[in-house]
């Protein structure tokens, strides 16, 4: 199956609605059998941190949306290695059941493989 769309998630959860609304858009596209590939980069990698307790600020956990991804056919996500390093986040800490994390160094090369990019 060839994907034509890459969704780039580069906003942190909770502080910016685009994080949640981006994942919702990914899930909606996947539900229509147009599953995009997904790249987490910049502050978007903070969406992947474990142990988020969004209830403390009366928000819904974004992790539920992430955990729903495999049910909609998203079984791997790309993660920008440089963004992790800049933020001192070890990829070992990031784990979402049923999803294979693929670390990417050449994000430009990745982007160039797609017809469309949706930025969130």
């Amino acid at each position: 199956m060839s994907q034509i769309t890459l969704a780039i998630c580069r906003h942190a959860p909770y502080g910016n609605a685009l994080a949640r609304e981006g994942l919702e858009a990914v899930l909606a596209a996947a539900a229509m059998d147009q599953t995009p590939d997904v790249l987490f980069t910049g502050d978007g990698i903070f969406q992947l941190l474990p142990d988020q307790a969004a209830g403390e600020i009366d928000q819904k956990s974004l992790h539920r949306n992430l955990q729903a991804l495999p049910m909609f056919g998203v079984e791997q996500i790309y993660v920008c290695q440089r963004s992790l390093e800049e933020r001192a986040v070890s990829s070992n800490r990031l784990a979402i059941a049923g999803i294979n994390l693929v670390l990417v160094q050449d994000t430009g090369g990745l982007i160039s493989r797609y017809q469309h990019v949706l930025s969130f």
Binding site: T41, T107, G108, G109, I111, S112
Partner: peptide
Amino acid sequence: TSALRDCLDAMADGD
């Protein structure tokens, strides 16, 4: 914001 820096990091040759 880091938009420009993030963009430059993600540019491939010829972009």
